[in-house]
Every structure is written in structure tokens, then in C-alpha cells.
């Protein structure tokens, strides 16, 4: 059996929202320790690696380990209905295969939705040696990416031990955003060697925009022409990490 409760429904809503930017159907790994999900978007450019320990929940019951697949945009529709100071309860009816979502506040409404056939495929993590590790405020990162998005659909991120520079070149306009070590935005940076890589802004901005609701501190790791890893520090015992493949520029 699987049954969990969370006193603050917004917490769940924000997380599901963050996951929903990459995938439509989410297969969660449910165990007695907590829930996990690792999945790539359909174009295989980005990946989300999410984990919540059972302690994140106010109540957590999971009998034997199982997989549960749901249509995440449908689930989002329901969760969007949650308001301030409302709690949420999820329970899986294993006979009917339907997921029950009960939202309790001023009044109680209980929705149910179908679960889908789970995807058995295990997604490995990318094997990358990262040369740069940068710690930013999530908000500062969001601002910088929003600036870059004004002029182009891709951004080149360069870093050394002193700073991180985002360079966006569009058809008509260009932008350079410099984050210095020790500034409000860039809390810390370490670079084994100066590195640069280019990423799609549509992915990057969606990821950061969604993650900002769940996290205050982000850790970026990358190497030249390698995928970037964005880890958003979670307030409770859990993790939300994204990987994004680089774009290779052609002269």
C-alpha cells in the first residue's frame, strides 16, 4: 500500500511543477524510504533527478517497493487547485490502479486519476568530470538567465576561479552578464580549469524558473562542451537535480 500526507500542499505542488517542465508521464519509485524519480525529457536533452526521503512527508506509508506512473500535467491540473494552508493526501488503490488525491482545507475534495503503465527503463546519470563548481542564489541565477533570454535562445557560460560570465548572442542584440565571486548572486566558485559551454536558454530558463520555488541555493557544475548539472538545494531531506546537454556551436 502507498499512502502519504503533506501538511503544506504548496510544497508538493511546486515540486510536481518543477518535474512537469521536462516530462509528461512520470514514473515514481516508491519504497519504504521515500520516493524517487529520474527521467529524461522526450528529446533526451535534459534530465531530472528527484528524491524525497519519507521524513519530508508528515505521514508516509509504503508497503512493498513499487513503481507508479502518472500523467504529470493532469496531476498538476488538480494540484493547482490547492490553496494556502491546505494539506494534501495521496493514496494508491492498487486494485483499481487509481491514485486518490485528497485536498483538505476549508473543505475537502477528493480527486481520483488513473495510473499508467510504468516505464521500467533505468536512466543512468551522465558520466562527466566537472571542472567548474559554482554556488549561486537561485534567484540570482534566474535573473541572469532572464537577462540572457532577452536577446537569444542560447547562452555560453564561461567560468574561471574568479567569475562566471554568460554570453548571449542573438540575431540583432547581444548580452554579457558577469557574476563575480563573492557577489550576492555568485556565492562561491572553483574551477580546475577555465571552461565554457553553450546551452539552450529555453530549457535553462524553464528549469530555473520552476526550481526557484523549491530552493534558494543552486550549485552549477560543468566542463567545456559537456552537460551542465544544476543542483537545487532542498530545505528538507531530498534532492532536485537537473542535467542539460550542451549545444555544440558550428562556425
Amino acid at each position: 500500500m502507498f499512502k502519504v500526507r503533506m501538511a503544506d500542499a504548496k510544497f508538493l505542488k511546486d515540486m510536481i511543477s518543477a518535474i512537469s517542465i521536462l516530462i509528461d508521464e512520470a514514473t515514481f519509485d516508491l519504497t519504504s524510504d521515500g520516493i524517487k524519480l529520474r527521467a529524461m525529457d522526450p528529446s533526451r536533452v535534459a534530465m531530472v533527478d528527484f528524491e524525497w526521503q519519507k521524513t519530508v512527508f508528515d505521514e508516509y506509508v509504503c508497503g512493498e517497493a513499487m513503481k507508479m506512473c502518472v500523467n504529470i500535467s493532469e496531476m498538476m491540473k488538480l494540484l493547482r487547485r490547492t490553496g494556502k494552508d491546505e494539506s494534501v493526501e495521496l493514496s494508491l488503490d492498487e486494485k483499481t490502479g487509481r491514485l486518490k488525491i485528497a485536498i483538505k482545507g476549508k473543505y475537502t475534495r477528493t480527486f481520483n486519476m488513473p495510473t499508467l503503465e510504468a516505464i521500467e527503463e533505468e536512466v543512468p546519470t551522465p558520466k562527466v568530470t566537472f571542472n567548474v563548481r559554482a554556488k549561486t542564489t537561485t534567484e540570482g541565477l534566474r535573473e541572469a538567465i532572464e537577462d540572457a533570454s532577452l536577446v537569444s535562445d542560447h547562452v555560453r557560460i564561461e567560468a574561471d576561479n574568479e567569475k562566471m560570465v554568460m554570453q548571449a548572442t542573438g540575431d540583432i542584440m547581444g548580452a554579457t552578464i558577469e557574476l563575480k565571486k563573492g557577489s550576492d548572486a555568485l556565492l562561491d566558485i572553483e574551477a580546475k580549469e577555465a571552461s565554457k559551454a553553450t546551452f539552450s536558454l529555453s530549457y535553462l530558463s524553464e528549469i530555473v524558473k520552476a526550481a526557484v520555488a523549491t530552493s534558494d541555493i543552486a550549485t552549477l557544475e560543468f566542463s567545456t562542451d559537456m552537460p551542465i548539472k544544476l543542483d537545487f538545494k532542498q530545505p528538507k531531506e531530498g534532492k532536485l537535480t537537473f542535467y542539460l546537454a550542451p549545444r555544440i556551436e558550428v562556425e
Partner: peptide
């Protein structure tokens, strides 16, 4: 067909 319009995928970094 050119890779500039086709971002790399993560799959390429998963093979050993």
C-alpha cells in the same frame, strides 16, 4: 542535419 540545430543529447554522455 547540422548539429547546431540539433542540441546534443545526454545519451551521448552516458555511454562509457
Amino acid at each position: 542535419l547540422l548539429p547546431s540545430k540539433a542540441p546534443k543529447t545526454l545519451l551521448e554522455f552516458m555511454e562509457s
